[in-house]
Design a protein around this nucleic acid. Structure first.
Length: 308
DNA sequence: GTTGAAATCAGAGTGACATG
DNA sequence: CATGTCACTCTGATTTCAAC
C-alpha cells in the first residue's frame, strides 16, 4: 500500500504541477522572494567574495538548467548583496511551496502511531543569474536548510509546542479538546500554569536539507521535503518555513559569515488535522511526490489502482 | 446509556536479506 | 540472478475507556 523511496523507475507524465495550477488558493503567503531594501546596482560586493569564489571562476560554479525559461529581469527583485557575496553572478532567488499539506489525522499522545501530513510539504528554491537564467549553484545550495514550525491558521499563534491540561497520560488530549469546545484554549501560553504541561504538538523532523533532484517533468531543481511531520491535536493550522543558509566552514572570513542567515520565511496554506473518526483518508500521492521518491527521497507513496 | 477520544489491531504492500 | 521469507511500515477499522 505504500513504500519509501522506490527504486528508479519510469517517469510519471502527469499534468504539469505548478504552484498556481495546483493550489488555486495560493497567494503571496506561499511565494516568497527575498529582496533587500538596498538596491545594489553595481558589482561592488566583489570585495566580500568568499574565498572559494575567489579561487574558482564563480561562473563555473553555476549550472544553467537547460530547457528552463529565462525570467524577465524586471520581474526579479533587486540584486541581492548576500547572493553576490557567495557568487557574483547570482542575482536573486525565489522560495516557493510547490506542494502544500492538505490534511492529516491527529496522532494524539501516542508516540508510536504517527500520522504524517498528506501530502508532504515540498518547497523549491530557485536561483537566477544576472541574465535571468534559472541556475543551480551546488556550493551555495548545499548550505541551505529549511526549518519549520506550526502556527494557527490565522498566523497569530505558534503551536509547535503547546500546554495541555495534565490529568493522566491517557486523557490529556481529551481534556484539551474539551477546553477548546468551551472556547478556551491554552495554545500559545508561555508561562506554565498549575495542571498544565508542555507538549510538542508538531512531531517529526522540523528541518530539511536541500536535495537537487528532478521534478515530475524531469526539470532539475533544489527541493526541501518534509515527509514525516505529524500533529498531535486536531485543528486548522499552517506551517511556517524558514530558509536558512548555514555558514560554510571554510569561508568564514568575517564574523557575519559565521552566523547562519535567514534568507526567507514563508507560510503554507491552511490545512486541517482531523480526529480519527472524521479523518476522510490520505491524499493520493502526487506526481511530484512520486518523482521525488523515485530519486531516493524518503516520501511515503500511496499505491492505488492507477498507480504505476 | 450515549458520546467522544485514545489506544490498539489487522490487512496489505514493500524492501532487505538469505538461499539455491 | 531468481526466488522465497521475514520484518517493517502504512492505513483504515475496531475496541476500550472515561465523561456526561
Amino acid at each position: 500500500m505504500s513504500n519509501y523511496g522506490a527504486s528508479p523507475a519510469k517517469r510519471n507524465n502527469g499534468p504539469r504541477y505548478t504552484t498556481s495550477e495546483s493550489h488555486p488558493g495560493d497567494d503571496s503567503s506561499a511565494r516568497s522572494q527575498y529582496s533587500t531594501d538596498r538596491d545594489v546596482t553595481s558589482m561592488g560586493g566583489m570585495a566580500a567574495m568568499s574565498t572559494a569564489s575567489m579561487m574558482l571562476d564563480p561562473r563555473s560554479l553555476l549550472e544553467v538548467i537547460p530547457g528552463t525559461r529565462s525570467v524577465d529581469l524586471e520581474m526579479l527583485p533587486p540584486p541581492d548583496p548576500f547572493l553576490q557575496q557567495c557568487n557574483t553572478f547570482l542575482r536573486a532567488f525565489q522560495f516557493t511551496i510547490v506542494q502544500h499539506p492538505i490534511r492529516a489525522r491527529m496522532c494524539g499522545s501516542s508516540d508510536k502511531d504517527w500520522r504524517p501530513l498528506s501530502p508532504p510539504a515540498v518547497l523549491k528554491f530557485e536561483l537566477f543569474d544576472f541574465e535571468g537564467n534559472h541556475v543551480i549553484d551546488t556550493m551555495f545550495m548545499q548550505h541551505l536548510v529549511v526549518h519549520t514550525t506550526l502556527w494557527s491558521a490565522d498566523k497569530s499563534e505558534e503551536l509547535t509546542v503547546v500546554e495541555l491540561p495534565h490529568n493522566s497520560n491517557s486523557k490529556r488530549i481529551s481534556a484539551a479538546a474539551k477546553s477548546r469546545k468551551r472556547g478556551v484554549t491554552h495554545f500559545g501560553k508561555r508561562a506554565s500554569e498549575p495542571g498544565l504541561e508542555i507538549e510538542n504538538n508538531l512531531l517529526g523532523d522540523y528541518s530539511a536539507s536541500s536535495s537537487i533532484v528532478e521534478d515530475e517533468h524531469g526539470e532539475r531543481g533544489c527541493y526541501f521535503v518534509f515527509p514525516n511531520l505529524s500533529i498531535r491535536l486536531e485543528g486548522r493550522y499552517r506551517l511556517r518555513f524558514m530558509l536558512i543558509r548555514l555558514p560554510s566552514m571554510g569561508n568564514c572570513d568575517t564574523l557575519e559569515q559565521m552566523v547562519p542567515k535567514t534568507l526567507s520565511e514563508i507560510y503554507s496554506e491552511e490545512f486541517d488535522v482531523y480526529s480519527i473518526k472524521t479523518f476522510p483518508g490520505m491524499i493520493e500521492s502526487t506526481p511530484l511526490s512520486r518523482a521525488l521518491a523515485q530519486q531516493g527521497l524518503k516520501i511515503p507513496i500511496r499505491n492505488t489502482q492507477d498507480a504505476n
